[in-house]
Design a protein around this nucleic acid. Sequence first.
DNA 1: AATGCTACGGCAGTTACCTCA
DNA 2: GGTGAGGTAACTGCCGTAGCA
Length: 329
Amino acid sequence: MELGLSLGDSSKDSKEFKFSTKNSNSEHHGTAMTNKQDGLVFCMALGLNSTFGNQESLENYNQDDDQTLQGSDDHQEKSMGTPVQLDLLPLAPVPRHTGSPLRVSGRSENSSLRQLGLLQPVVASGSAEEEVLSANDVMEAERTSSRASDEDENSHKSGKKLRLSKEQSAYLEENFKEHSTLNPKQKQKLALAKQLNLRPRQVEVWFQNRRARTKLKQTEVDCEYLKRICDSLTEENRRLHKELQELRALNSSNPFCMQLPATTLTMCPSCERVAAAATTLTTTPATNPPISKTSTIESTPKVIPFPLFRPRFYPFFRSPSHYHQSASS
DNA sequence: AATGCTACGGCAGTTACCTCA
DNA sequence: GGTGAGGTAACTGCCGTAGCA
């Protein structure tokens, strides 16, 4: 099991974000994270024998967080046994729409102004024709929404709150799945309001609240992941403590073994018994070169391999007899 | 080109109402 | 029928951006 942590500028080359040092298996098993978005990204991955998520999953996450939510249960189930990947990154940047053709005095579709009869739609001059909301469109939308306004006018005055019908909610949901923000260029807000017999402000509010709910839900999912990973790390920590005690016990019985650098320790892949690594250094110097100052640990400062020493997958496999001989000698 | 104003849209936080157990 | 919790429509305030004079 390996854990990698990285913190850095995602706009840089994706290779800088690989959870690996070049002499570990994890680089081979995949990129822990890459992200083309600008901004700071924090990613945390945990896996058995390193099998991390890929770029595609990240992009899916960003592009459609709602779908990610729907698939989260599946993801969690998969993450229980083997690899767990936790991504803490900004939600998908909401594209800012520019140059809205509808200019209104004050806040758009402000209900208080509307109720006071102060809201007058004003079309910007000089815009491209397809960009400009025609007067007829505005009038029609206002007329349509005024019907809705008439219907809930009394409820507004009486302080009652209208609840959207199932059909209205379903249609809005459908549009939200396609894109979580309203497209001003396509006059989506007015179109939806017209189709659903709602005020444009209601459509706008619905999308805002819907985004907020999605974000809240994602936060809950992230917290759940964090909790699971915390539990996993706690268990790993406990196991490593136990392993350390065993190593110390071994050292006390055979002090010669622990006089060597920790990185030269090996473990029998068969029975997982630790062997003295003196022979590793003395008999196979070519396959076990000393760590140089230009090692990958320095070349990838953003990557923190964890645990720092894990002999279980030591690359220089030998026959069990070799380990047993070394351990007994 | 720099600056201030205005309009707009998004978000966080909050309130108020409705529904349901 | 009263009540508390949860869901959600709606509001408020702030901020960033874009267009314009």
